[in-house]
Amino acid sequence: MKVLLTVAATMTAALAAIPAHAGPVMDEIVSSDKVICLVNPNSPGFSVADSEGVFHGFNTDFCRMAAAAILGDAEKADMRGVGFSDALKTLVAGGGHMASRSITQTGTRDADPGLSFVVTTFYDGQGFMVPTSLGVNSARELGGATICAEDGSTTLMNIADWFTDQDIEYRLENIADKTARLEAFFSGKCDVYASDITALFSDRLLSNAPLDYKILPEVISAEPLTLVTRPDKTFETVLFWAFQVMLNADHFGINSTNIDEVVATLPDQPKAIYRLFADDSATVDMARNLGIPEDWAYQVIKQVGSYSEVFDRNLGRKTVFGVELNDTSNALTRDGGQMFAYPIR
């Protein structure tokens, strides 16, 4: 028993960092002058480290969004690559301010008092990839197949649910190491690779012959990939509305290249745009209450860009992924997607 207790004592070191009440995350960010943001260590299109160890990609741009809004400088985002299993634990233990790493918002995770799910940046769903040579056209033909999936993720639950519902037998390979998992799939140890559709698109590129693999039409789950923070009402509010600014920018056709022009001609702009960027605008009121720079909305668009800009830059037509934003659920609601731009006033 004594050994167990000693073990518990060691754990305290990590747990003692948990604040008694939500609130100080924002103070911590301001005093340390950086936003510690947990991202995927290696996920093409979403977050990949360059030769200097700096992460770039769709997910990392929301870390930069936070830094631009709070500290006025997107470069003050301190991005750290953390595996899925450890990201939530790290966050709860106080090892980061926020996570932007394709974490699905689920009820039980959200109910955890140590975590706050703020805003969904990407609507994804789980699908299957198979070698074209397998001759399979639907996931319903996968009876008895071996499926490779990431250990510890919701993918495992979705697979279990879907195959049980369809009454199809399968065999699971829950592999934590990404290299091992992809090698297992590309070598034919697994027949099927299961992950979020976007991850399938990007992981396919890691094979020697991406065209030898195809993604099956079934999408078996809803995966709202959401920004997660340590609980802090102020911090959460900033993240939520900074994201809304990015959506509103799209709604009004504003982006990082034309923002200066828009701001220069504010009196001629529609009222909604005026409210976003003017000196006596709603965003300035918000800034005073939240304790962030008054030009936060401008900085977010100027330094990071609008939502579609971020999407296109990392995943769009001109990238290897070639995903058209308006073909996905991530288009604005007026374009048939699920991204609803909240009014800022």
Partner: peptide, 15 residues
């Protein structure tokens, strides 16, 4: 270790 990690992610009962 593997099942324990998955359980922590699902239930969020790390301690």
């Amino acid at each position: 270790m593997s099942v324990s990690g998955t359980i922590i992610n699902q239930t969020f009962k790390p301690l």
